[in-house]
């Protein structure tokens, strides 16, 4: 798989600058694959993961990341409920609603999440391994969006 941050930034000078830390570039890409398209997806399908990633990108609002995940969600998310989740709509199925609530909360205000919020996921029937996988998805993307924002600014984007 090509490097997705290079794809988002689309600037050869920034791609070269990133190679001062080649190992960071490669491990970041491996972590992206581990949270979006893992070999063992457990209880969170690749389609669900991409829908949630798109939702998070829109919530965070980093332009290059929104464009990337919008395009990828349109191409790979077929289920209508998940397409709605990707676009930012609420979910009605209790399991998915619990996941979406956690995604929204931890993306925008991680400090507001504590013991009760993990208990709510357990009560919605989500296995502990999937709670950790969901947490890694949210947390990794929070990192990736911030790396992309910093690189957008070094590319010379105003505003």
């Amino acid at each position: 798989m090509a490097d997705v941050i290079d794809e988002m930034i689309a600037d050869p000078a920034i791609a070269r600058l990133r190679r001062a830390r080649e190992d960071v570039v490669q491990l970041t890409q491996r972590c992206y694959e581990a949270v979006l398209t893992p070999k063992e997806p457990g209880g969170l399908s690749a389609e669900e993961r991409m829908a949630l990633a798109c939702r998070m990108a829109r919530l965070t609002g980093v332009p290059a990341a929104v464009a990337f995940y919008d395009a990828h969600a349109r191409a790979t998310v077929q289920n209508q409920t998940l397409r709605d989740v990707a676009a930012g709509s609420p979910a009605h199925d209790p399991r998915l609603a619990a996941i979406v609530a956690h995604v929204d909360r931890v993306t925008t205000n991680p400090h507001a999440s504590g013991r009760a919020e993990i208990a709510a996921l357990v009560a919605a029937g989500i296995a502990e391994r999937d709670i950790v996988a969901l947490s890694e998805l949210i947390a990794f993307l929070s990192y990736q969006f911030r790396v992309v924002r910093g690189l957008e600014l070094l590319r010379g984007d105003a505003a």
Partner: peptide, 19 residues
């Protein structure tokens, strides 16, 4: 770039450790 990485990394680490 190093600072972007370290600040962003804790957007990740904080979200695991705190939640």
């Amino acid at each position: 770039v190093d600072l972007i990485h370290s600040a962003a990394l804790f957007g990740w680490a904080n979200r695991l450790m705190h939640t």
